[in-house]
Amino acid sequence: MTTASSADHPTRRDFLFVATGAAAAVGAAATVWPLVAQMNPDAATIAAGAPIQVDLTPIAEGQDIKVFWRGKPIYISHRTKKQIEEAQKVPLSSLPDPQPDSARVKSGHDQWLVVIGICTHLGCIPIAHEGNYDGFFCPCHGSQYDSSGRIRQGPAPANLAVPPYAFLSDTKIQIG
């Protein structure tokens, strides 16, 4: 029943249908955008993720603290001489995710290791001062990290991430 008149103006008719269909598609896409975008962090969450400052003076050598930034635990370790030496000595070729210790700490502040305490395997929190490498041990599936937070053994694929941070003074850092 549509053939009779479509023969009269085939192009005009097709153009109209295509234009309407295209407009509907554009409208649908534009509608979906806010429906999905609302799942992203809201403005208050983003504002709360602003940089934080941490005073390092109370952390004695060999100790570490855990602070939270953007809901993530950040380990700040005051490393001992032995830990620093171990971290610097290990040959890079033996590491699953090769990275020199100098790339993981700020130069001149070798004693401070700042890492995001989230196992790169599936997100559990590794325990400090445990495992065979004088670093971290993840209880979930047995990943072991060394005193530089580098993966040494276990299923985790990568080193513990280093968050963006800077020394404001010798005893104060700003994370974020």
């Binding site: 806010p34 429906l35 975008a37 609302q38 992203n40 809201d42 403005a43 208050a44 969450t45």
Partner: peptide
Amino acid sequence: DVNYGWLL
């Protein structure tokens, strides 16, 4: 604060 929250 929510993205497009006012719209929704």
